[in-house]
């Protein structure tokens, strides 16, 4: 198998990695916000519930969470939800792995939303109380204060820790491997098993490196763009 053919074969897997990456961000970034607000709620039961939830999600390996999401419908409700989605979409639309990918996306979105929520919470709590009060004495509503005053300062503060999580995320997508989703490392493993080629496995590192390199530049630009004010 030529270098070019291996590259294309791995690229097919990396598409799945990128899909997991994008959808996790798309779902996790907004989903983290309500979790953060619950964690800061003055209503005690909600606060405790949210803290326990974040503790569990952050306390269990993501790989285990993928297994739980994937197998629990079958074990508890005797209905193999994700395997059936897999079958259905494969038969009717010829889409492979859809059910498995769905399970991975759910696990990733929840997991990352919890990590994001803690970053948001830290960011929101680090905005000085005086900013909020300045909005209050100027007769602004809670919503106006949050969206017009607090939010931008929070964004500025959370860009560096969020960058960290986002960079971790692309590498975490390799965990989808555990329920046989054909992401890039699974593809490389297939080559090892069927063609006795080990080097593609190491070659996958180049894909991640390139991706993270572009990401680092983009996030660095964002950080620079927000440096016009100091908060």
């Amino acid at each position: 198998m030529s270098f070019w053919n291996v590259t294309l074969f791995l690229l097919n897997g990396f598409k799945i990695s990128c899909l997991i990456f994008l959808v996790t961000l798309l779902l996790g970034i907004p989903l983290g916000l309500p979790i953060a607000f619950c964690s800061m709620s003055r209503f005690k039961p909600l606060k405790i519930l949210s803290k326990v939830f974040v503790w569990i999600i952050r306390g269990i390996p993501l790989m285990l969470q993928i297994f739980i999401i994937y197998y629990v419908p079958g074990l508890v409700f005797h209905y193999q939800l994700f395997a059936n989605v897999d079958k259905y979409l494969l038969i009717h639309y010829g889409i492979e792995d859809a059910g498995r990918i769905l399970a991975v996306l759910i696990a990733f979105a929840i997991n990352y939303a919890c990590y994001f929520s803690e970053i948001y919470r830290g960011g929101i709590e680090s905005v000085p109380r005086g900013q909020y009060e300045a909005g209050q004495v100027l007769g602004m509503t809670k919503g106006q204060i949050f969206f017009r005053i607090t939010l931008m300062q929070v964004i500025k503060r959370i860009v560096p820790p969020m960058s960290n999580e986002i960079i971790t995320l692309i590498k975490d997508t390799a965990l989808a491997n555990c329920i046989m989703v054909a992401e890039i490392i699974k593809q490389a493993n297939t080559l090892a098993a069927t063609k006795a080629l080990i080097w593609p496995l190491f070659y996958t590192g180049a894909f991640y490196l390139l991706f993270v390199g572009v990401l680092t530049i983009l996030l660095g630009r964002l950080e620079k763009k927000l440096s016009y004010f100091s908060a």
């Binding site: 000085p128 005086g130 900013q131 009060e133 300045a134 209050q136 004495v137 100027l138 007769g139 602004m140 509503t141 809670k142 005053i149 931008m152 300062q153 500025k156 004010f229 100091s230 908060a231």
Partner: peptide
Amino acid sequence: SEKELRALRLRFGLVFQNFNLFPQ
């Protein structure tokens, strides 16, 4: 209510010890 409080606050201005200007 929140709304009544807001209307009342508008009758008074407040200048803070540490300014609290909006940095952005």
